[in-house]
Write a protein that binds this DNA or RNA. Structure first.
Lengths: 206, 206
DNA sequence: AAATAATTTAATCAAATGTTTAAAATAATT
DNA sequence: AATTATTTTAAACATTTGATTAAATTATTT
């Protein structure tokens, strides 16, 4: 680290980096201090406690994921086919820039499920009342195939974009990919995933 | 817990449960002892240290995932279409019985990537030398479509089966599913995922 | 039944860890 | 320039936590 940032920012950036990699329980405040290049007491001086700092980092990370998810769900400028291209690419952008974020969020939620309802106001109808859901339902009705709950398709988009990042160390190990190969692999998925999703929705490729 | 098991087993079962949910760093040996209903000192009496006990739990969990993966990859009794049905269902079976396992394994690997190479002998050619890979490559060649690396398809199988479990708390929260709904949702995917995968491989549904 | 081995318990230890404190250093204000 | 406020530091504190020890209990063997 070191960068010429105000101390407060240096601490938060270091905290983000370490929390994202090691999780709350696996992170020691002294590691954050070292990463930020500051005296350990400054963490408490600026953020009161490890937990307060963590909450900040977690909420920011969750917002980032949540924001892209909302774009994915509620945009109504584009028709379904165009939107699928857009959202898959958008999601890959976000996760590529924060590869540790999904596993961090999911891991902390699992370790502490109570907080999900308290801290985060996720409406239970987030998916089913979304524009995207409606568009998919219409498309699936028209295509006259086996009825499929559009939730499956939305989950498939998330699965196929996010999972490779979550499983990156294993994938790299099983395929002898280096970091560049992996990046290339993800790039290929920018066009492949929309293609597969459209096929699930019986949308003709043009 | 309590069950009438030998102390040694009680400890390992309790350890598995807590490690799987909280991870190594988030688990206190006293919590394991309490869960097992035994005196804290017995953990060290039977397993020497928290780390030794953890390694045992981790290796067993990894073997379980790994074993199903190997079945997935190396079976050559069945042709591709039948095999896809089989392996998707098999994988859903395994993960349904251990819903916390995938996130546990992936999280611990991320927190401690060095151990992946040391502890686990994953050959780097695990995927590309597999029977499944060969079958997919043949199928994709014959179908005469855009060339797609079969790795993508294998990753898609894993993504679409595993990710819903990894994201379960979020999915439940966004869709108002209860546990039964979620189970039903997974059951639907037993037939849907093979259908989608075959479509990606241009295999005709019969 | 006596002796020995194995298991369990309560108490304690040492190290790690989040946090506080009081003084020192630096910056801002008058 | 003197004073005040802010930031930084080194040291220490209180808890937590993994581990150990020695005694007590239970089981096994002779």
């Amino acid at each position: 680290m070191e960068k010429d940032l105000p101390t407060e920012k240096k601490i938060k950036e270091a905290a983000r980096k370490i929390f994202h990699k090691k999780g709350y329980a696996g992170t020691r405040t002294r590691d954050i201090a070292e990463e930020a290049g500051i005296n350990p007491a400054l963490l408490n001086y600026y953020y009161r406690s490890k937990e307060k700092l963590f909450d900040l980092v977690f909420d920011e990370g969750f917002s980032e994921i949540s924001a892209s998810l909302n774009i994915l769900l509620n945009d109504d400028k584009f028709d379904l086919a165009v939107k699928i291209d857009y959202i898959v690419n958008k999601y890959i952008d976000v996760v590529s820039k924060n590869p540790d974020l999904p596993l961090f969020i999911l891991g902390e939620i699992k370790a502490n499920p109570e907080n999900l309802k308290k801290k985060l106001g996720l409406s239970g109808t987030l998916l089913t009342t979304s524009k995207l859901y409606e568009q998919m339902r219409n498309q699936l009705d028209f295509s006259g195939s086996i009825p499929v709950n559009p939730i499956h398709i939305i989950i498939n988009i998330l699965s196929m974009t996010i999972f490779p990042f979550v499983g990156k160390p294993l994938i790299k190990n099983m395929t002898e990919m280096n970091d560049l190969d992996f990046e290339q692999f993800i790039e290929e998925r920018r066009t492949l995933i929309p293609m597969w999703i459209k096929s699930m929705l019986k949308i003709q490729e043009k």
